[in-house]
Nucleic acid binder design. Structure first.
Length: 299
DNA sequence: ACTATCCCCTGACGGC
DNA sequence: TGCCGTCAGGGGATAG
Protein backbone atom coordinates (compact mmCIF):
# COMPACT_ATOMS: atom_id res chain seq x y z
CA UNK A 1 0.00 0.00 0.00
CA UNK A 2 1.40 3.39 -0.87
CA UNK A 3 2.82 5.21 2.16
CA UNK A 4 5.23 8.14 2.28
CA UNK A 5 8.15 6.46 0.44
CA UNK A 6 5.92 5.20 -2.36
CA UNK A 7 4.17 8.56 -2.81
CA UNK A 8 7.57 10.28 -2.79
CA UNK A 9 8.78 7.84 -5.44
CA UNK A 10 5.76 8.57 -7.61
CA UNK A 11 6.37 12.30 -7.14
CA UNK A 12 9.99 11.94 -8.22
CA UNK A 13 9.11 9.86 -11.26
CA UNK A 14 6.58 12.53 -12.26
CA UNK A 15 9.06 15.38 -11.82
CA UNK A 16 11.28 14.02 -14.55
CA UNK A 17 8.63 14.36 -17.20
CA UNK A 18 5.47 16.20 -16.18
CA UNK A 19 6.43 19.81 -15.34
CA UNK A 20 5.97 22.09 -18.33
CA UNK A 21 3.50 19.73 -20.03
CA UNK A 22 0.12 21.06 -21.02
CA UNK A 23 -3.09 19.11 -20.46
CA UNK A 24 -5.19 18.67 -23.58
CA UNK A 25 -8.06 16.44 -22.49
CA UNK A 26 -9.36 14.55 -19.46
CA UNK A 27 -11.52 11.43 -19.43
CA UNK A 28 -13.21 10.15 -16.25
CA UNK A 29 -14.29 6.54 -16.81
CA UNK A 30 -15.21 6.09 -13.14
CA UNK A 31 -16.48 9.44 -11.85
CA UNK A 32 -16.30 8.24 -8.23
CA UNK A 33 -12.51 8.53 -8.37
CA UNK A 34 -12.83 12.33 -8.53
CA UNK A 35 -14.25 13.37 -5.18
CA UNK A 36 -14.60 17.04 -6.15
CA UNK A 37 -16.80 16.03 -9.08
CA UNK A 38 -15.83 14.60 -12.46
CA UNK A 39 -17.55 17.35 -14.46
CA UNK A 40 -15.59 20.35 -13.15
CA UNK A 41 -12.41 18.26 -13.19
CA UNK A 42 -12.85 17.36 -16.85
CA UNK A 43 -13.64 20.94 -17.82
CA UNK A 44 -11.08 22.83 -15.74
CA UNK A 45 -7.85 20.97 -16.47
CA UNK A 46 -7.52 21.19 -20.26
CA UNK A 47 -5.35 24.09 -21.39
CA UNK A 48 -3.44 24.27 -18.12
CA UNK A 49 0.24 23.50 -17.71
CA UNK A 50 1.65 21.39 -14.88
CA UNK A 51 4.01 23.70 -13.01
CA UNK A 52 5.03 21.62 -9.99
CA UNK A 53 4.70 18.41 -8.01
CA UNK A 54 4.32 18.41 -4.23
CA UNK A 55 3.81 15.85 -1.47
CA UNK A 56 2.63 15.93 2.12
CA UNK A 57 2.40 12.61 3.92
CA UNK A 58 0.62 10.26 1.55
CA UNK A 59 -0.97 13.08 -0.47
CA UNK A 60 0.41 14.12 -3.84
CA UNK A 61 -0.27 17.58 -5.28
CA UNK A 62 -0.06 18.71 -8.89
CA UNK A 63 0.34 22.47 -9.26
CA UNK A 64 -1.31 23.82 -12.42
CA UNK A 65 -1.03 27.14 -14.20
CA UNK A 66 -3.60 29.66 -13.01
CA UNK A 67 -2.97 28.79 -9.35
CA UNK A 68 -5.01 25.60 -9.33
CA UNK A 69 -4.04 22.38 -7.58
CA UNK A 70 -5.02 18.74 -7.94
CA UNK A 71 -4.77 16.55 -4.83
CA UNK A 72 -4.32 12.79 -5.10
CA UNK A 73 -4.43 9.95 -2.58
CA UNK A 74 -3.61 6.44 -3.81
CA UNK A 75 -5.04 4.69 -0.73
CA UNK A 76 -4.56 0.93 -1.09
CA UNK A 77 -4.14 0.04 -4.75
CA UNK A 78 -4.04 3.33 -6.62
CA UNK A 79 -1.45 3.99 -9.33
CA UNK A 80 -0.52 7.06 -11.32
CA UNK A 81 1.13 5.95 -14.54
CA UNK A 82 2.60 7.30 -17.72
CA UNK A 83 1.23 5.10 -20.49
CA UNK A 84 1.35 5.28 -24.28
CA UNK A 85 -1.23 7.79 -25.48
CA UNK A 86 -2.96 5.29 -27.73
CA UNK A 87 -3.18 2.39 -25.31
CA UNK A 88 -6.79 1.45 -24.58
CA UNK A 89 -7.71 1.89 -20.89
CA UNK A 90 -8.32 -1.37 -18.99
CA UNK A 91 -11.23 -1.84 -16.58
CA UNK A 92 -9.22 -0.36 -13.67
CA UNK A 93 -8.15 2.81 -15.48
CA UNK A 94 -10.49 5.41 -14.00
CA UNK A 95 -9.07 8.76 -15.11
CA UNK A 96 -6.95 9.59 -18.16
CA UNK A 97 -5.13 12.89 -18.53
CA UNK A 98 -3.87 13.53 -22.05
CA UNK A 99 -0.93 15.86 -22.68
CA UNK A 100 -0.27 18.00 -25.73
CA UNK A 101 2.73 17.14 -27.90
CA UNK A 102 3.39 13.94 -25.97
CA UNK A 103 3.25 10.26 -26.78
CA UNK A 104 2.31 9.61 -23.13
CA UNK A 105 -0.80 10.16 -21.09
CA UNK A 106 -1.14 10.19 -17.31
CA UNK A 107 -3.49 7.45 -16.10
CA UNK A 108 -5.01 6.94 -12.67
CA UNK A 109 -5.60 3.19 -12.11
CA UNK A 110 -7.08 1.68 -8.98
CA UNK A 111 -8.31 -1.90 -8.59
CA UNK A 112 -10.19 -1.27 -5.34
CA UNK A 113 -11.40 2.22 -6.21
CA UNK A 114 -10.46 3.65 -2.80
CA UNK A 115 -8.07 6.24 -4.24
CA UNK A 116 -9.23 9.80 -4.93
CA UNK A 117 -8.33 12.73 -7.14
CA UNK A 118 -9.70 16.17 -6.41
CA UNK A 119 -9.52 19.71 -7.63
CA UNK A 120 -8.57 21.67 -4.52
CA UNK A 121 -10.60 24.74 -3.59
CA UNK A 122 -7.38 26.45 -2.44
CA UNK A 123 -3.71 25.78 -1.88
CA UNK A 124 -2.24 22.49 -0.61
CA UNK A 125 -1.41 24.30 2.64
CA UNK A 126 -5.09 25.14 3.15
CA UNK A 127 -6.03 21.58 2.26
CA UNK A 128 -3.57 20.22 4.84
CA UNK A 129 -4.99 22.59 7.45
CA UNK A 130 -8.60 21.72 6.68
CA UNK A 131 -7.94 17.97 6.81
CA UNK A 132 -6.01 18.62 10.02
CA UNK A 133 -3.07 16.61 8.77
CA UNK A 134 -0.05 16.55 11.05
CA UNK A 135 3.43 17.58 9.92
CA UNK A 136 5.07 15.40 7.28
CA UNK A 137 6.94 12.49 8.87
CA UNK A 138 10.21 13.65 7.26
CA UNK A 139 9.78 17.25 8.47
CA UNK A 140 8.41 16.92 11.99
CA UNK A 141 10.78 17.94 14.79
CA UNK A 142 11.40 15.82 17.91
CA UNK A 143 9.81 18.27 20.35
CA UNK A 144 6.70 18.46 18.23
CA UNK A 145 6.33 14.68 17.96
CA UNK A 146 6.87 14.38 21.70
CA UNK A 147 4.08 16.86 22.42
CA UNK A 148 1.72 15.15 19.98
CA UNK A 149 2.35 11.67 21.39
CA UNK A 150 1.99 12.94 24.92
CA UNK A 151 -1.54 14.22 24.42
CA UNK A 152 -3.19 10.99 23.33
CA UNK A 153 -4.34 8.03 25.38
CA UNK A 154 -3.93 5.62 22.51
CA UNK A 155 -1.19 3.07 21.96
CA UNK A 156 1.93 3.91 19.99
CA UNK A 157 0.90 2.16 16.80
CA UNK A 158 -2.53 3.82 16.68
CA UNK A 159 -0.91 7.23 17.25
CA UNK A 160 1.74 6.76 14.54
CA UNK A 161 -0.89 5.60 12.03
CA UNK A 162 -3.01 8.69 12.74
CA UNK A 163 -2.30 11.16 9.93
CA UNK A 164 -3.34 14.01 12.23
CA UNK A 165 -0.42 13.19 14.53
CA UNK A 166 2.13 12.95 11.75
CA UNK A 167 1.53 12.38 8.05
CA UNK A 168 3.05 9.61 6.00
CA UNK A 169 3.32 6.40 8.02
CA UNK A 170 1.06 3.47 7.17
CA UNK A 171 0.90 -0.11 8.37
CA UNK A 172 4.13 -1.39 6.81
CA UNK A 173 6.49 1.38 7.89
CA UNK A 174 4.95 1.69 11.34
CA UNK A 175 5.71 -1.97 12.07
CA UNK A 176 9.22 -1.70 10.60
CA UNK A 177 9.98 1.47 12.58
CA UNK A 178 8.69 0.08 15.88
CA UNK A 179 10.73 -3.10 15.43
CA UNK A 180 13.93 -1.20 14.70
CA UNK A 181 13.26 1.17 17.60
CA UNK A 182 12.55 -1.84 19.87
CA UNK A 183 9.20 -0.41 20.95
CA UNK A 184 6.00 -2.37 21.47
CA UNK A 185 3.16 -1.26 19.18
CA UNK A 186 0.83 -1.71 22.17
CA UNK A 187 2.75 0.59 24.43
CA UNK A 188 0.98 3.75 25.53
CA UNK A 189 2.05 6.59 23.19
CA UNK A 190 2.19 9.08 26.05
CA UNK A 191 4.59 6.94 28.07
CA UNK A 192 7.66 7.72 25.93
CA UNK A 193 10.29 10.04 27.33
CA UNK A 194 11.71 12.94 25.30
CA UNK A 195 14.84 10.90 24.69
CA UNK A 196 12.83 7.89 23.52
CA UNK A 197 10.79 10.03 21.12
CA UNK A 198 14.00 11.51 19.76
CA UNK A 199 15.36 8.00 19.10
CA UNK A 200 12.03 6.95 17.58
CA UNK A 201 12.09 9.90 15.19
CA UNK A 202 15.65 9.11 14.11
CA UNK A 203 14.44 5.58 13.30
CA UNK A 204 11.44 6.94 11.37
CA UNK A 205 13.76 9.11 9.26
CA UNK A 206 16.21 6.26 8.65
CA UNK A 207 13.54 3.77 7.61
CA UNK A 208 11.73 6.23 5.34
CA UNK A 209 14.98 7.45 3.74
CA UNK A 210 16.14 3.90 3.17
CA UNK A 211 12.79 2.98 1.60
CA UNK A 212 12.89 6.04 -0.66
CA UNK A 213 16.41 5.05 -1.81
CA UNK A 214 14.91 1.70 -2.84
CA UNK A 215 11.95 3.49 -4.45
CA UNK A 216 9.41 2.08 -2.00
CA UNK A 217 7.89 -1.29 -1.14
CA UNK A 218 6.15 -3.35 -3.83
CA UNK A 219 4.21 -6.17 -2.21
CA UNK A 220 1.28 -6.33 -4.61
CA UNK A 221 0.25 -3.37 -6.74
CA UNK A 222 2.68 -0.57 -6.09
CA UNK A 223 4.72 0.83 -9.00
CA UNK A 224 5.91 4.38 -9.69
CA UNK A 225 4.70 6.53 -12.60
CA UNK A 226 7.16 4.76 -14.92
CA UNK A 227 5.82 1.36 -13.88
CA UNK A 228 8.90 0.46 -11.84
CA UNK A 229 8.52 -1.67 -8.73
CA UNK A 230 10.29 -0.70 -5.52
CA UNK A 231 12.82 -2.85 -3.68
CA UNK A 232 12.19 -2.27 0.03
CA UNK A 233 10.08 -5.45 0.30
CA UNK A 234 13.41 -7.30 0.46
CA UNK A 235 14.54 -5.18 3.41
CA UNK A 236 11.44 -5.76 5.56
CA UNK A 237 12.37 -7.26 8.91
CA UNK A 238 8.99 -8.01 10.47
CA UNK A 239 6.07 -6.93 8.25
CA UNK A 240 4.29 -10.02 6.89
CA UNK A 241 6.91 -12.35 8.38
CA UNK A 242 5.08 -14.25 11.12
CA UNK A 243 7.00 -17.34 12.16
CA UNK A 244 10.29 -16.12 10.67
CA UNK A 245 13.24 -15.66 13.03
CA UNK A 246 13.70 -12.16 14.42
CA UNK A 247 16.85 -10.80 12.71
CA UNK A 248 18.16 -9.66 16.10
CA UNK A 249 17.35 -12.44 18.55
CA UNK A 250 15.94 -15.34 16.55
CA UNK A 251 12.60 -15.41 18.36
CA UNK A 252 9.74 -16.14 15.94
CA UNK A 253 7.99 -12.98 14.70
CA UNK A 254 4.38 -12.83 15.86
CA UNK A 255 1.33 -11.48 14.06
CA UNK A 256 -1.38 -9.85 16.16
CA UNK A 257 -4.01 -7.16 15.74
CA UNK A 258 -3.29 -3.69 17.13
CA UNK A 259 -5.43 -0.63 16.38
CA UNK A 260 -7.50 -2.88 14.11
CA UNK A 261 -4.49 -3.60 11.86
CA UNK A 262 -2.42 -6.69 11.23
CA UNK A 263 0.72 -6.10 13.27
CA UNK A 264 4.06 -7.91 13.16
CA UNK A 265 6.54 -7.66 15.97
CA UNK A 266 9.19 -9.53 17.93
CA UNK A 267 7.73 -10.56 21.30
CA UNK A 268 11.19 -10.45 22.85
CA UNK A 269 12.79 -7.32 21.36
CA UNK A 270 9.62 -5.24 21.62
CA UNK A 271 8.42 -5.94 25.14
CA UNK A 272 6.11 -3.36 26.67
CA UNK A 273 7.25 -2.07 30.09
CA UNK A 274 3.72 -0.79 30.85
CA UNK A 275 2.06 -4.18 30.49
CA UNK A 276 4.96 -5.82 32.32
CA UNK A 277 4.21 -3.63 35.31
CA UNK A 278 0.53 -4.47 35.07
CA UNK A 279 1.44 -8.15 34.91
CA UNK A 280 3.34 -7.83 38.16
CA UNK A 281 6.89 -6.86 37.27
CA UNK A 282 8.32 -3.92 39.15
CA UNK A 283 10.22 -1.29 37.13
CA UNK A 284 13.42 -2.74 38.51
CA UNK A 285 12.63 -5.95 36.69
CA UNK A 286 12.07 -8.37 39.58
CA UNK A 287 9.32 -10.88 39.11
CA UNK A 288 6.53 -10.49 41.62
CA UNK A 289 3.57 -12.01 39.83
CA UNK A 290 2.61 -14.36 37.02
CA UNK A 291 5.14 -16.12 34.85
CA UNK A 292 6.89 -14.75 31.82
CA UNK A 293 4.03 -15.65 29.48
CA UNK A 294 1.90 -12.92 30.97
CA UNK A 295 4.38 -10.25 29.90
CA UNK A 296 4.54 -11.34 26.28
CA UNK A 297 2.25 -9.20 24.23
CA UNK A 298 0.76 -12.00 22.19
CA UNK A 299 0.29 -14.64 24.81
C1' DA B 1 -12.76 16.83 21.94
C1' DC B 2 -11.51 12.00 21.72
C1' DT B 3 -11.81 7.43 20.48
C1' DA B 4 -13.68 3.25 18.41
C1' DT B 5 -16.34 1.11 14.77
C1' DC B 6 -18.33 0.69 10.27
C1' DC B 7 -17.91 1.02 5.44
C1' DC B 8 -16.16 1.28 0.76
C1' DC B 9 -14.12 -2.31 -3.07
C1' DT B 10 -12.00 -6.26 -5.34
C1' DG B 11 -8.65 -10.04 -5.63
C1' DA B 12 -6.60 -13.70 -3.11
C1' DC B 13 -7.15 -17.53 -0.48
C1' DG B 14 -9.05 -21.41 2.29
C1' DG B 15 -12.55 -24.81 3.08
C1' DC B 16 -15.61 -28.12 1.37
C1' DT C 1 -13.09 -27.83 -10.37
C1' DG C 2 -15.73 -24.38 -8.52
C1' DC C 3 -18.44 -21.98 -5.38
C1' DC C 4 -18.73 -19.17 -1.38
C1' DG C 5 -17.29 -16.83 2.75
C1' DT C 6 -13.63 -14.20 4.77
C1' DC C 7 -9.94 -11.07 4.89
C1' DA C 8 -6.98 -7.01 3.82
C1' DG C 9 -6.72 -1.85 4.72
C1' DG C 10 -6.68 4.40 4.59
C1' DG C 11 -9.46 7.48 5.85
C1' DG C 12 -14.17 9.63 5.99
C1' DA C 13 -18.54 9.18 8.29
C1' DT C 14 -20.86 7.94 12.17
C1' DA C 15 -21.68 6.50 16.90
C1' DG C 16 -20.65 6.55 21.66
Amino acid sequence: MPELPEVESVARSLRGFLPGRRISRVLCHFPGSVSSGAGPFRKTLPGRTVVGIGRHGKYLFLGLSGGLYVGLHLRMTGQLLFLPRRRAPDSHSHVEIFLTASESKLVFRDVRKFGRLELLPGSPEEFIRERRLGPDALAILPGELYQRLRQTRRCLKAALLDQRVLAGLGNIYTDEVLFRARLSPRRSASSLSRRQVQALLLTIREVLASAIRRRGTSISDYVDARGRRGGFQFALQVYGRQGAACPRCGTPIVRSVVAGRGTWSCPRCQRDPDSSRRAGVRPGGHWTGPGIGATLENG
